[in-house]
């Protein structure tokens, strides 16, 4: 129940795009049409669901102060938390590489449609951000971490598909001042959507 609550909250209240502005670069660059936006959204969700539990295990059993206790009493006061940034990004980069190879091997058609986005994901701030928030919030278990990852991913997917749909319409039906066309108006729409998403604040299940 608690995990479900966390999942819903991560989609709507703690939305990666509208509440934290993480992953904005690819959000702005790849939102010109719904189909590619959907592909990128799915890829990001996938990576969040995989990397968050892995980084959680790493954090709990290797990096945190006293986390190495399972190796023996003499390791009980080792604190490796200063390494966490490097470890997290290494996990994310290598996971991206692994997933890319696996997808290429087992599903060439999915690879063809996701192909260009997969390498981009290693530097998507939403993924690293998810791991850093996980570290900050002291999640209770691997499942909680996985649920939060799924929620953040789904929220990101929702946001990028929504903005891509709006931009598709804008391109054909609206008369925007020339200097605002393209990126300018996208910023303003994102801001308005962010304000709309604030109405979800305080939701409890």
């Amino acid at each position: 129940m608690e995990n479900l609550n966390l999942f819903i909250r991560s989609i709507f209240v703690d939305n990666m795009i509208f509440a934290y502005f993480l992953g904005m670069c690819s959000f702005l660059a790849v939102s010109k049409n719904v189909k590619t936006a959907l592909g990128l959204g799915v890829a990001v969700t996938f990576m969040l669901v995989i990397t968050l539990p892995v980084n959680y295990l790493l954090e709990t059993y290797v990096l945190r102060a006293g986390a190495l206790r399972w190796l023996g009493a003499e390791y009980a006061d080792v604190d490796l938390s200063f390494l966490s940034l490097i470890m997290f990004i290494a996990v994310i980069a290598s996971m991206t590489q692994l997933v890319e190879m696996a997808v290429e091997k087992f599903s060439p058609s999915l690879y063809a449609s996701l192909g260009i986005f997969l390498p981009l994901i290693a530097v998507n701030c939403a993924i690293l951000g998810g791991s850093l928030f996980m570290q900050q919030r002291n999640f209770g278990s691997v499942w909680t971490a996985a649920c939060a990852g799924a929620g953040w991913g789904a929220g990101w997917l929702l946001a990028i598909v929504a903005i891509a749909a709006i931009r598709e319409r804008l391109a054909s039906y609206s008369n925007i001042p020339r200097p605002l066309r393209g990126i300018g108006i996208t910023f303003i729409i994102t801001a308005l959507m962010g304000i709309a998403f604030m109405s979800f604040l305080g939701i409890k299940i």
Binding site: L180, F187, I188, G194
Partner: peptide, 17 residues
């Protein structure tokens, strides 16, 4: 609130362009 940052940046873009 966070969304206003987007609007301020949009205004900078507008002015520059």
């Amino acid at each position: 609130l966070p969304p206003m940052a987007l609007i301020v940046v949009a205004c900078i873009i507008w002015a520059q362009r």
